[in-house]
Amino acid sequence: MNTYSTACFTESRFSRYFLSDPYPAFPAPECWTSNLRFPGGFTCGTMVGAVIVDGGPMMPTIASIALVLLAYLSGSIPFSLLVARAWGVDLRVSGSGNVGAANVWRTCGFSAFALAMGGDMLKGALPTIAAQALGLSPLAVVIVGTAAMLGHTRSIFLGFRGGKAVATGGSVVLTLAPLVALPGLAAWAVTFGITRISAVASLTAAAVCGIAAAVLLALGMLPPAYAIFVWGAVAAIVFLHRSNIHRLRTGTENRFEKLF
């Protein structure tokens, strides 16, 4: 699937559409794509957003922007912090000090972890599913997923601080490309079972997802926009784990002693 940007000109107005597969007929007057002219109409993809000068509806663009903002706000909800607080624990001063689900497991137990993990995953998955249901292009869907991840890592409710995007980013990847996410999930489980170190499991899972995305892209089974998102998410997760990587190098990284 490819994403196209088609500019259409008429005598009275200028419209710019962001388009993607599949290719339903979208009638238009005199239209040009780059240097190509298609008199009387053209065949193009689903309209994702429109910016129209000199009249005309703008709802697709408004809806897309609103969904991005909602995704960011959704991602900003600190479910792990709220769940831990219900257990009488302040994550910011307990365990590793991180406001992520792994620290909930470490400080509050597995039941609290399951609730926190579910919340962190839903806040990434639901906006992404909504973007897909609205028929947005792969690029637009990726922007929505990225907004959810950004909200999790730079929450407006936590002074633009947050978690490390593993659960929220993973849920976005799972929604976009299950064949990328599932090997990563398996890698996380195996690595965590062996090492009992959440950071090692998360970094291993991220690496596996990056490789899986490259393979599927090469096989033509993954839109380029989704592959780029996965690689960007991998880079973000590695960056956000830089303190963990330092502790791993010095042998001081936190290890789970008790799972249940």
Results as ranks from 00 to 15, higher is better:
T146K: 07
A147F: 15
A147M: 15
A148Q: 14
A148N: 14
M149S: 13
H152T: 05
H152P: 06
H152D: 12
S155Y: 07
I156L: 15
I156S: 14
F157I: 01
F157L: 13
F157G: 04
F157D: 06
F157M: 09
L158P: 11
G159M: 10
G159E: 11
G159H: 12
G159L: 11
G159F: 13
G162S: 06
G163M: 12
K164L: 04
K164M: 04
K164E: 04
K164Q: 07
K164S: 05
K164H: 01
K164V: 00
A165F: 06
V166L: 07
A167Y: 02
T168K: 05
T168V: 03
T168Y: 03
T168D: 05
T168H: 05
G169A: 08
G170A: 08
S171V: 02
S171F: 09
V172T: 07
V172F: 08
V173K: 07
V173I: 12
L174D: 01
L174A: 13
T175Y: 11
T175I: 10
T175R: 08
L176D: 13
A177Y: 06
A177F: 08
P178V: 01
P178N: 02
L179G: 00
A181H: 03
A181R: 04
P183G: 10
P183H: 12
G184Q: 09
G184I: 02
L185H: 02
L185Q: 06
L185W: 06
A186N: 05
A186F: 13
A186S: 07
A186D: 08
A186L: 12
W188K: 00
A189R: 01
A189V: 08
T191S: 08
F192E: 05
F192N: 06
I194V: 15
I194N: 01
I194W: 13
I194C: 10
I194L: 13
I194Y: 12
T195E: 03
T195N: 09
R196C: 01
R196M: 02
R196D: 03
R196K: 11
I197N: 02
I197A: 01
S198R: 00
S198L: 00
A199S: 15
V200H: 02
A201K: 01
S202L: 05
L203S: 00
T204Q: 00
T204N: 00
T204I: 04
T204S: 11
T204W: 03
A205G: 09
A205C: 11
A205T: 04
A206N: 09
A206P: 12
A207F: 15
A207P: 04
V208N: 13
G210H: 07
G210A: 10
G210Y: 04
I211Q: 05
A212T: 14
A213R: 11
A213V: 12
A213K: 10
A214Y: 08
A214C: 13
V215H: 01
V215D: 05
V215Y: 09
L216C: 02
L216P: 01
L217F: 14
L217G: 10
A218V: 02
A218H: 10
L219H: 03
L219A: 12
G220P: 04
G220L: 05
G220N: 06
M221V: 03
M221Y: 15
M221D: 14
L222G: 10
L222E: 07
P223K: 15
P223N: 13
P224D: 09
P224T: 12
